[in-house]
Write a protein that binds this DNA or RNA. Sequence first.
DNA 1: CTTCAAGTACGACTTGCATCGTACCTGAAG
DNA 2: CTTCAGGTACGATGCAAGTCGTACTTGAAG
Lengths: 111, 111
Amino acid sequence: MAGRNLVGPEADALDLGAVFRALADEHRRSVMMELAADRSDSERGCNSFDLPISKQTQTHHFRVLREAGLIDEIDYGNRKGIRLRRADIEKRFPGLLTLLGAESPGGTAPR
Amino acid sequence: MAGRNLVGPEADALDLGAVFRALADEHRRSVMMELAADRSDSERGCNSFDLPISKQTQTHHFRVLREAGLIDEIDYGNRKGIRLRRADIEKRFPGLLTLLGAESPGGTAPR
DNA sequence: CTTCAAGTACGACTTGCATCGTACCTGAAG
DNA sequence: CTTCAGGTACGATGCAAGTCGTACTTGAAG
């Protein structure tokens, strides 16, 4: 019931390249922008982001975000929780979340 | 002799996605880290970065950085100058250059 | 003029990555 | 137990991007 936390890198081990690669994708960036804009940092369901892509692809994107150290994934078995690692990101890359939170959600269309 | 400035996007038109995509590449990121760390913002030759890649690929990378709005390229015909667009970047994405400049040059090895 | 170095244009190759189809696992509700 | 929805694992596919080879252009030096 408690749900186990899937592991990501330590706060000091966050790699800037991995972070930029994670944020280079439009869908992952929209997730991070939503998380950064919500100052309550509450745990969210991973289907609460209305991503226009299949389940398998969503799994892939959340995994990339977790492996970059940007989010925690809490595994409940048949459900999954998402939480922003705000403190760790702010410690390692101060100002990054401010950039994301300040960006307008549907503003910049890719391509 | 004066060299003409190759055009990039306006300061307000900088796209966060394009910037993250540009910074996702290791070589482009190392160029930007060098530029961000040098507070004098002097114009540099594009062969002053010791990139372990061919001329053609370097041309490609500098083009990506310019089209993302991160640098200016000054064309002298048989030579090219590179200049960081520090003011425009700071205006649109405050704190981004601080992140890059604070990163250790050969610190995090990708792959 | 010729020569040379720096850079670009174009194309080909290769790798990486986003996406999805199929199958399987997990936990809750009947 | 069975059923069902949420999620994952594995593989295949298609496309974007990094890389380089060849050829061409530019400007300076001789």
